[in-house]
Design a protein around this nucleic acid. Structure first.
Lengths: 103, 103
DNA sequence: CGTGTAAGGAATTCTGACACG
DNA sequence: CGTGTAAGGAATTCTGACACG
């Protein structure tokens, strides 16, 4: 159905992710340990990634090449998240102000 | 980049495909043997399917439930393919006729 | 014909640790 | 800090075959 559902579906094993990203399995596991990606697990414990995760890992790899450290990347992600939440709250506030001036 | 590229990328192992489709691994391998799906292989030999393959397998499962046999499903697919090729040729012919009446 | 299953082996993945730096 | 590697074990997958029907 929805195309974005494929992008976020956790179905790819670490070996394939390694091929797609060019990163070693060791690197991928380390980035998970540092809370930069969040794969799911099968019952047996094998990691399962999404295409979104693959994109994120490529992005992480670029930032690492630029000399950034994992905690900086994590903070940058959180910052982006906070900003987008802020924007959403402001937008909601404006909408409410425009349409619900008196309840 | 292109969303459809995700859909056709062969990255999913048979265990995950089994979960996504509800089919047994045995069934999936058999449908491959009958030329209904065409997974890629890793160097080691493990099958890798795409989301398109998953969709196709769900479709196959429905047809099997309706009592259709694998060779009928295969022929139906080929027929669809031939028809779409025919439509394309006819469309191209009309376009050529409209714009290249004299070369 | 389509599918389940047990069998044996190979490929894949996992964790914790040591190493270097 | 980030990553390679050897180690041992567990989960996953593979093929060919027998069975039922």
């Amino acid at each position: 159905m929805n195309l974005s559902s494929y992008k976020d579906k956790k179905v790819i094993t670490i070996g394939v992710v390694s091929e797609l990203t060019g990163l070693s399995e060791r690197q991928i596991r380390y980035y998970e340990e540092r809370k930069l990606v969040f794969p799911e697990r099968s019952k047996g414990g094998t990691r399962k990634f999404s295409f979104s995760d693959v994109e994120r890992l490529v992005d992480i790899a670029n930032k690492m090449e630029d000399g950034m450290q994992t905690f900086e990347i994590r903070k940058m992600e959180q910052k982006k998240l906070r900003e987008s939440e802020l924007r959403e709250r402001m937008l909601r506030g404006q909408l409410n102000a425009a349409f619900n001036i008196r309840k």
